[in-house]
């Protein structure tokens, strides 16, 4: 069953048209990648979904038209946006960041269990639980950003460049944990990633954007086999 459906989505920053008709769908429990060069519209696609940029076209989540909703309303539908640059709240402690993630929830017990789950998924965070988020390393901040997303108990997670600025081994750790999260939680994922090799370890299908449009869509295996994808995104 389709959880998220984008049809002919457009968006612009002022006079600059960034999305020129993006179409994609994320099935329930599925993981879909968005690949493409800088400026192709990957991040903007996520921002259009979460309501941070105004968009045209159709954006339907779980049968409900969510286009035009405010970001907090979109979040309340069950979509967690883990933004590029992580968006951790620097002056708050790790635990406080997690509690902000759980803002819309009332189930005390479930919240405690999910905090434990996050700390189990990212053991680095356990010893930093009372540190300010600004004192964390880049990798730990990324782990915290994903954890904050988990705490909202979403049905869909929008992951934007989770590997950005991380050492290769750290990036791999983060993706290993996200893969585990996907298997254990069944959260559907829409993943923007520059590093296509990493993305293909997580997603089932992907679409390649070029200047705000879908250039190619296919399964991970198909795309990995294509020469132009290899040249452009997989380093030869």
């Amino acid at each position: 069953m389709t959880l998220l459906e984008l049809e002919d989505v457009t968006a612009s920053y002022g006079p600059v048209q960034v999305l020129d008709g993006v179409t994609l769908s994320v099935p329930e429990n599925g993981a879909v990648g968005i690949l493409g060069a800088n400026g192709a519209g990957k991040t903007t696609t996520l921002r259009a979904i979460s309501g941070t940029v105004r968009a045209g076209g159709r954006i339907v989540f779980d049968g409900k038209d969510i286009r035009g909703m405010r970001p907090d309303q979109v979040a309340a539908q069950g979509i967690a946006h883990v933004p590029e640059g992580r968006g951790t709240l620097g002056d708050l402690t790790v635990r406080e960041n997690l509690m902000v993630g759980a803002y819309l929830r009332k189930d005390r017990k479930g919240i405690d269990e999910d905090v434990d789950y996050c700390l189990d998924l990212f053991p680095n965070l356990r010893e930093r639980i009372t540190s300010n988020a600004s004192a964390l390393s880049g990798g730990e901040q990324q782990m915290l950003a994903v954890s904050r997303g988990i705490m909202s108990k979403p049905r869909l997670m929008l992951l934007d460049e989770a590997s950005l600025g991380l050492a290769p081994s750290t990036a791999k750790n983060v993706y290993d944990a996200i893969r585990r999260l996907r298997v254990e939680s069944g959260i559907a994922m829409l993943v923007v990633e520059q590093n296509a090799n990493l993305a293909f370890t997580l997603v089932d299908t992907a679409t390649v954007l070029e200047t705000g449009r879908n250039a190619l869509t296919g399964s991970s295996a198909e795309l990995k086999g294509m020469d132009e994808i290899r040249r452009a995104y997989l380093g030869g």
């Binding site: 979460s50 907090d72 979040a75 967690a80 709240l89 002056d91 902000v100 993630g101 819309l104």
Partner: peptide, 23 residues
């Protein structure tokens, strides 16, 4: 919880909204 939400919004309103805070 209200205080935590107010602090979160003060630090980064957009990111706070991603967790459903009515900024």
């Amino acid at each position: 919880k209200l205080g935590l939400a107010l602090r979160a919004v003060a630090i980064n309103p957009q990111s706070a909204a991603f967790s459903g805070l009515p900024v």
